[in-house]
Design a protein around this nucleic acid. Structure first.
Lengths: 326, 326
DNA sequence: ATGAAAGCGCTAACAA
DNA sequence: TTGTTAGCGCTTTCAT
């Protein structure tokens, strides 16, 4: 690898002068135009590539940030990654994407590894509302922002969809279509996301003077949701509207509905959190609560950037969801 | 940040000794057990985190590799990223994921940036069969492997699905179901992926003594494919089997078919390259050619690791696809 | 069994 | 207008 030193030797200059030129500070140091030219040409000829690694080491700043996602298979996280990466790149940062799998132990190891890598900051999703790793991380002083949900009791910035509003959109849609018997299939409350979505459901129902026709709390995956919905549909008084609190559970619900062979949407309607790109191709129509996933990624990075600069960051940045009725 | 020096000073030892202990070389250097203990305890107490950045700088090796993907929105690339990240992590590397968007200019900038970051190697997908950026990269000597497709005329390792076999699976499936009028909707031949998939289609058709009922070459996106399929279905002698060469085109085809209101699968059957996780929920059934995306990512990293160690790497690593009939 | 010193590539403070 | 020097945190070679 060609270094500044090599260029300096070739031109019988000092490494400093080469640095001045190559970092564009020749104005300030009043390097002669001819020298500037010679340095530039030599750099070009030798194929010089500055070492961001050396610079990072010197500056004690790596210009890299990490995004720890739970599951890249989920379009939500993919979208967040895309948004964050775009913004990071625009600001001269690289994004290191890591998987936590929603597993506390993996998260701990990942965070540790990233700290050793000296990332300048992290964007993470707490595994639970009592995430110890993040509490520790905060003590160490590494800037980070939370995404999609928060841990409890700590004043750490979070960028997320307005889950409460999202639930309201879902309920209002069903109510508007004339449903009164509405059930929810939701994930575990240890994850704040689901806590709020459930709360939003309850509030919106109450607002319309309705009682939940069912509250199924399951692991936030397709199969448990399918099971739960099958159960709901077997009841003598079965709900006519079902709200599923994330994409996997929506898939599960749709499978249950398909298997029940109901007349859709006359006998049953489904609304799910998380948009589905190909919902228009589904046999069973489904209305979705769309999240601006790229905006979440973008805003998370922006918030992190502020935090890294020591600027104040709002405790919560809420991104508005939208209903995609079908 | 706590450094070895801080530990050394606290214990009135030399930094060297601390290093010997913390890197686990105390056996070799015969550091006394009591010192080992003291160092370890102090490191723990002070919250020492070794700086992978400093080490990378010193070793001129960053233990990071880059994966440049075209579009993280595509489950293919997501799966590859997951596979590559898993393997990289297992080997002590971090994966930097970047977007090229299939754009030559972006690819150039991305590669340049990653070189400056001193990644130890890259996994990339050539933008076209004549990708100049990769040709240049090769001259510079940075180890890299190609994924999904190759540039022409250069002896650079590539890990990909056996596209030829995939096309054969698709055609054979349609033939087995009794179709004789089979058309293909394919992406541009500048991308080797599509070149081979088309070739595979032609060969498989010929093997069964069939002539293509249509060869539509379009941009590899949903809308152009939808257009193309609409055209195919308007023909007096319309095909009864359609093979779409990637996921987006499959979506387009399915929309065209849905709009044409044909009796499926009696009047028409579709087979698409790339699996669709929720195909079972589709109104129009579709058979898919499944790729082992995680294996591709894994194998790509393994190949890269070999290349980085200077070991020989096979020119091509082909991963077998599988048919998911529906 | 432990330590001193050099050096990885770069930038900034300070000379000249 | 250009150069000298020091130092970022770590590992290794060579002493002691």
């Amino acid at each position: 690898m060609v270094r500044m030193k090599d260029i300096a030797e070739k031109l019988a200059l000092s490494q400093t002068t080469v640095s001045h030129v190559l970092t564009g500070k020749h104005e300030h140091y009043r390097i002669s135009p001819s020298t500037v030219e010679r340095v530039r040409r030599a750099a070009e000829e030798l194929g010089y590539r500055s070492s961001a690694l050396a610079r990072a080491f010197r500056d004690r700043k790596s210009y890299s940030v990490a995004l720890a996602v739970e599951d890249l298979t989920n379009p939500f996280w993919t979208g967040v990654a895309i948004g964050a990466e775009k913004e990071a790149e625009a600001q001269g940062y690289v994004l290191i994407v890591s998987n936590t799998n929603g597993d506390a132990e993996r998260e701990r190891r990942t965070v540790q590894m990233l700290q050793e890598r000296r990332v300048d900051g992290m964007i993470v999703s707490p595994v639970t509302v009592a995430d110890q790793t993040l509490l520790d991380l905060r003590k160490e002083g590494l800037p980070f922002v939370q995404i999609d949900r928060s841990i409890k009791g700590a004043d750490i910035p979070c960028v997320r969809t307005d889950h409460l509003a999202g639930s309201a959109l879902a309920v209002e849609h069903l109510v508007r279509r004339g449903h009164k018997e509405i059930a929810i299939v939701c994930g575990p409350p240890e994850i704040q996301t689901f806590q709020i979505r459930l709360e939003g459901f309850r509030k919106a129902m109450a607002k319309h003077g309705l009682k939940p026709a069912g509250v199924e709390v399951v692991r936030a995956l397709a199969e448990p949701a399918q099971e739960a919905v099958r159960g709901l549909l077997e009841r003598r008084a079965r709900p006519t509207g079902i709200y599923t609190a994330n994409i996997w559970m929506t898939f599960g619900a749709l499978r249950a509905v398909r298997d029940a062979k109901l007349a859709i949407p006359r006998e049953l309607e489904i609304v799910g959190f998380d948009d589905i790109a190909v919902a228009d191709l589904f046999a069973v129509p489904v209305t979705t609560v769309w999240q601006d996933v790229e905006a979440i990624g973008r805003e998370a990075f922006k918030a992190l950037l502020k935090a890294m600069k020591g600027q104040p960051v709002p405790r919560e940045t809420l991104i508005a969801p939208r209903l995609k009725a079908r």
